[in-house]
Computed example of a mutant assay.
Amino acid sequence: MSAHDKSTEDPTKIAGTAAFSKFMVVLQLIADQDGPLNIAQLAALSGYPRPTVYRILAALMAEGMVVENPRSKQFEVGPRLINLASRAWDRSDIRTTAIEPLRQLRDITRETVHLAVPSDLSMVYIEKLESPQAVRMASRIGTRVTLYSSSVGKAYLAGIDEARREALMRSLHLERFTEHTHGDLDSLRADIVQTRSCGYAEDREENEAQIHCYGAAIVGPDGVPVACVSVSIPLFRRLPDPQQAYVAPLLHACATISRKLAGPG
């Protein structure tokens, strides 16, 4: 590369960005899985050669971001990452503002309540309050759910402006999780129209069979969604009047949190 070429190089391309991105891909893969992964699985999922994955894992282990099970040779998130995530959740304005209304929502509905924030083309759970009943949801804090199959995702899509919504939807890969999952954009658009009309979203066994969820948005002072809340109910115990049992308390909780975020005045 000539001196002229160096001087005109894109200043936004920071040295080490590509390597850092690879580290994040591997770390995200480990964090997203329900169980630990070995090097072969990580290489297959990431598309990186095994030697590259090994070097990345060695660096992540040195920093306490991942740990290796010496018997199974599998990797999972480490104590440092868990500590960082815990501190971030504890300091989150949305989470701390929302926690009491979320507890009240869980106690009223007696079902699992999630608080989720948007992240790229998905939503991430940053809080989960378990149902006090015997059958519970298998989700956990940090779980990612899609914008098109989850009630929190559809509530978020319904709350943003049309141009942003259409751009996001066109970027989605509509994978079918159940027979009820949206398989095309036209059906998703129709669902979003309904969501905007009634003020809440539904996941009708679209993300997981036999689970029905209701979701609604928490909005900032500008009226734009900053997070979403869902109530998840196993179908066998869904009450006959869901509007009264789940939707009304959900909308009340989201409105309360939105007002608290806006502050006095």
Results as ranks from 00 to 15, higher is better:
160 I>N: 00
134 A>L: 13
181 T>A: 02
166 E>H: 09
137 M>T: 15
127 E>G: 03
154 K>P: 02
189 R>D: 12
185 L>Y: 07
220 G>E: 05
150 S>P: 02
203 D>Y: 07
171 S>Q: 15
134 A>M: 13
125 Y>G: 04
151 S>T: 05
166 E>T: 15
202 E>P: 03
208 E>A: 13
119 S>L: 13
141 I>M: 04
227 A>M: 07
165 R>N: 06
163 A>C: 08
140 R>T: 10
196 R>A: 11
137 M>P: 05
202 E>Q: 14
136 R>E: 10
213 C>W: 05
228 C>E: 08
143 T>A: 12
119 S>G: 08
154 K>F: 01
155 A>E: 07
169 M>A: 09
190 A>M: 12
137 M>V: 14
224 V>D: 05
174 L>A: 08
116 A>N: 03
121 L>I: 11
238 R>G: 09
124 V>Q: 03
138 A>I: 11
119 S>R: 08
163 A>I: 14
133 Q>R: 13
132 P>C: 07
138 A>T: 12
185 L>S: 06
142 G>A: 05
147 L>Y: 01
238 R>L: 15
240 P>K: 05
134 A>K: 11
144 R>M: 10
164 R>F: 03
218 I>C: 00
195 T>G: 00
234 P>Y: 08
242 P>D: 11
208 E>Y: 06
219 V>F: 03
202 E>H: 06
182 H>C: 12
198 C>Q: 15
207 N>D: 14
160 I>R: 00
128 K>L: 14
186 D>Q: 15
169 M>P: 00
130 E>F: 04
161 D>K: 02
154 K>D: 02
140 R>V: 09
183 G>V: 10
156 Y>E: 01
149 S>D: 14
204 R>G: 04
153 G>M: 04
135 V>C: 05
197 S>V: 10
191 D>A: 07
206 E>T: 06
226 V>M: 04
127 E>Q: 06
143 T>V: 09
217 A>T: 11
135 V>R: 09
177 F>C: 04
162 E>D: 15
129 L>P: 01
141 I>K: 02
137 M>G: 11
201 A>C: 03
134 A>Y: 12
151 S>Y: 04
215 G>S: 09
132 P>H: 10
218 I>L: 02
234 P>S: 08
150 S>Y: 02
191 D>P: 01
179 E>L: 13
227 A>G: 02
165 R>S: 12
229 V>N: 01
236 F>V: 13
119 S>E: 15
199 G>S: 08
231 V>R: 00
210 Q>V: 07
204 R>S: 13
238 R>D: 09
241 D>K: 14
136 R>I: 14
183 G>W: 12
